[in-house]
Design a protein around this nucleic acid. Structure first.
Lengths: 185, 185
DNA sequence: GTTAGCATGTAAGGAGTTACATGATTTT
DNA sequence: AAAATCATGTAACTCCTTACATGCTAAC
């Protein structure tokens, strides 16, 4: 029960690792951190926080209530803080990142926490991401050449733009991998 | 009941507009058409097709059964074909495309069928997409400048790359809008 | 004192995936 | 005749959004 998973869990734990935050603020930081990659709504954030409390990864702190013994059922800010288990779990998620880490939905979040990730794991994720994109590139290019003549101008333009975007990301990854390699020496 | 919606409906109708196809082949074309933008699984395609049959947009044709009076419950290819209502509905979806047409998940599909879309609708979608991206650009840039000093190197790099990708798409849209404008004369 | 923005929460449901199950056809 | 690929289908589930509902706090 209440087993939060998905990208959000990692993102929340990572942000709370920096400093305790309440939900509303957390959501803003989340959407800033992920910038143009994705956005979350409160409808998924709050249940996720409850789930993380239930599994002991984070604890609630109600500053208002403690400060001036206000009624407990009143609506007030709830500041969430990582527990020791939460920190451990976060490091675990970063260290044991599997192939899902280089899928579209997850790569950005993992990358955002590279500062706290071991160099070898960083390299594994960057290379995983790159081969993932290269597979896609091969598939699309093959299909494209095969069908080219049967496609109309707009479809071709869409394909061309899509391919170019993926190629750009591959070049970006190449540079990152190179600079990781250089730092290793 | 059985009211299929989402991008898939439009994509399926659009592909069947070109030629009748069976599910398996349809899925391949779908994923080719959308190239690097998205992919669908059978688990969503087949129910979608059933739904479109239920609402009279398409009809089933079982060539194997008809050809050599095979048992009807046998597994055989099912070729789907657009009905008159289906064609009408497709044109309707293209012509009455609302703001959702320029969201990330839908833009690609609408663009792919621009060849069958009126020039003024095309322009509306391209401009809608562009202002959508520009809004995002403004938001991310503002947040970025505000937080810059508190972000680590990898997070900054992620933001930078994200911004650059969106800026590139805006430039692409600018060119498309310009060339649509030129053709109008 | 009222509007705008901060803040928390939930119920219903959309749009898909995964994993499975089955069978037909082609290739080796 | 085995293996690969073509082909259809479904049940359970995931992850998230939308729309709603409530209340607090600052600014005008």
């Amino acid at each position: 029960m209440a087993k939060p998973s998905g990208v959000m869990e990692l993102a929340v734990l990572g942000l709370l690792h920096e400093s305790p935050l309440h939900g509303y603020e957390l959501r803003k930081r989340l959407n800033l951190l992920l910038g143009s990659f994705r956005a979350f709504s409160y409808g998924s954030l709050y249940p996720c926080l409850k789930g993380l409390v239930a599994t002991g990864m984070i604890v609630e702190d109600r500053p208002d209530v403690e400060a001036h013994g206000a009624e407990a059922n009143r609506r007030s800010k709830i500041v969430y803080k990582l527990t020791a288990e939460g920190k451990e779990h976060f490091q675990d998620l970063l260290a044991n990142a599997g192939p899902s880490a280089w899928e579209d939905e997850n790569f950005g979040v993992h990358f955002a926490f590279f500062g706290r990730t071991d160099a070898d794991v960083r390299m594994r994720i960057l290379q995983g991401r790159r081969s993932r994109l290269e597979e896609r590139l091969d598939a699309v290019r093959a299909a494209f050449t095969r069908m080219r003549t049967r496609l109309d101008d707009y479809t071709i333009e869409l394909q061309r733009h899509g391919l170019e975007s993926v190629e750009r990301e591959v070049r970006w990854l190449n540079e990152l991998i190179k600079s990781e390699d250089d730092q290793r020496k």
